[in-house]
Design a protein around this nucleic acid. Sequence first.
DNA 1: ATTAGCACTCTCGCGGTGAGAGTGCTAATG
DNA 2: CATTAGCACTCTCACCGCGAGAGTGCTAAT
Lengths: 339, 339
Amino acid sequence: MALTDRRADILARLVDEYIDTAVPVSSRALVDRHRLGLSTATIRNELAALEQDGYVTHPHTSAGRVPSDRGYRLYVQTLMTEEAVPQTERRTVEHQFHQASGGLDEWLSLAATVLAGWVGNAAIVTRPRARITRLKHVQLVQLHEDTALVVAVMDDGRVQQRILSLHGLLTQRELSASAERLNARLSGRDAEVARAVGQELTSANDRLAALIVAELIESHHATEGPYLDGVQVVLEQPEFASPERMLEAVRHLVAYELDRVVSVAADVEPGGTKVMIGSENSDPWLQEWSIVISSYGGRGGLAGTVAVLGPMRMHYARTIPRVRYLSALIDNLMRELVS
Amino acid sequence: MALTDRRADILARLVDEYIDTAVPVSSRALVDRHRLGLSTATIRNELAALEQDGYVTHPHTSAGRVPSDRGYRLYVQTLMTEEAVPQTERRTVEHQFHQASGGLDEWLSLAATVLAGWVGNAAIVTRPRARITRLKHVQLVQLHEDTALVVAVMDDGRVQQRILSLHGLLTQRELSASAERLNARLSGRDAEVARAVGQELTSANDRLAALIVAELIESHHATEGPYLDGVQVVLEQPEFASPERMLEAVRHLVAYELDRVVSVAADVEPGGTKVMIGSENSDPWLQEWSIVISSYGGRGGLAGTVAVLGPMRMHYARTIPRVRYLSALIDNLMRELVS
DNA sequence: ATTAGCACTCTCGCGGTGAGAGTGCTAATG
DNA sequence: CATTAGCACTCTCACCGCGAGAGTGCTAAT
């Protein structure tokens, strides 16, 4: 059956309505709340057709219609009209970002919080992850007589540290000299090179420190999970009304699987957004979730993602532009940060 | 009515049983599963007496008994026998801690995870918070032509960083020299001194950097919330079976109120534990929760806490020694770290 | 002091039931 | 020929009543 304009229009209204109310949409609701110049009977015919084409479903005989994955997909692709992020909200957020002086980490955390608050779903923001990280600078700081802290600054402006047990007693002056030597040879290098260089160093302390630096560069990716906010608000959605559903959702959200979730952003070009709806997700537990995801950075090999995770019944028209906006905002801020 | 030995014994069994099964304990269950040489009728009399004294309650007429706050209190204080942490588990954990080379932050996160897994409740571990933090070392790392990263190492071995916009273009060599000067004047100083010193510096960049260092020292306390783990496991407890309860619990656990929660550890001496049961908590939302809390560090002014948060029906005999153990473990590790 | 026995109370799960919502179909309508 | 009024039919859901079961409290016997 062909998808006539009228039918598409009805589908659009239906999805809007369902997103809004979370209640299966009846023909009555459609004529009452959206001024279609048609009777419920006509709508019912059209709905039946939409159902045949797989855009909507029926929980049971005497219930209204609910969009299917396919229905949402069409809606997102062509039916909805995106809601621009209001100027006032942009201003507020940009102000907040400029207040936040803590650097990248604070921005990302803030982005997750803002996003979750805006869209009423869970927001995930990952740190930028370079395909290959390089060392920018290393410093050795004395802690104890025989221990020092290796502080490594990476080329993405983030910092890693680890404790080093020294061979013999050294002063801070000696440590600084050692750091100087290391910087000369390791600055701008990646983990592999750092390891190789480290192995040929003769001074025991220099060698140890270099190897630790190599490890720090390597483990840089893995450090700490992404920023997550909005768990408490997404759980208020009616789809999690039963304890089992809610518990399952919490489990997946707090377990550290989120990195996998956002990995679908691999092929999203910066400035673009990707939407994964229900069965379009490969993870089994995501079959009834949708993800709106965007990436920032990327050109220089530093890519991070901004995503919203929620039930399929999600306010896409509001969510998509906001994800895109925040992603672009971080992108700009980051550009100032990376040399 | 006097609390005879027998009555205390029965109370102890009852609490054990209830903690185990989460079901109101009947006189029948008590004689069947704990070899008391008494009939159910006798037990019933004793239970009635315990109820009169306020140690147990009755959900309704024909239900078994449930310990009251007061009952739990007596149980914790005098009735239970603590379960030592098995040697094997200690070994495993200590091994894990030695593997974890990422320093303090990684230890704390690990401690929360281990603890939550051990006791089946939420675990909270806060970072050590000095009454007064001092700078150990500062380093300036060039990012851009006109921006640098200020990296400050504090005396507790943690690192803070912030971006600095430079006045004029500087080389890394010049930045290092600047850092050298700053170290000479700021190392070992607290925020107030750093600010005062900063203000009298003549070089614009040095002054800016010093002021940022001062702010970093100050804001050091506030950075990031405590480590939390076990949310998903505590929610499996039957007390959270209803969606409302569960949602409320999630809200409080993910909201950043946990710092307030652990503030009750203020007067716990290191090596000791404190238990707060139900109404003993001042926060209204904690009226049906218990907290087992311990602190580490503290002598040198660096104090952090290790805590377990769960429903009142908590396995105290197992939880208390484990909280104490992990707290002591961190205490030891930290002592190696702080000069 | 302990215990057997028994009446009494309260919960909980179950099946039945009726109102309400919504559909699908048919026949009438413009 | 598309639209619509009308109506029978279906399914859910909240409510009610009820009986089984669990557990107590009390009394009288040991």
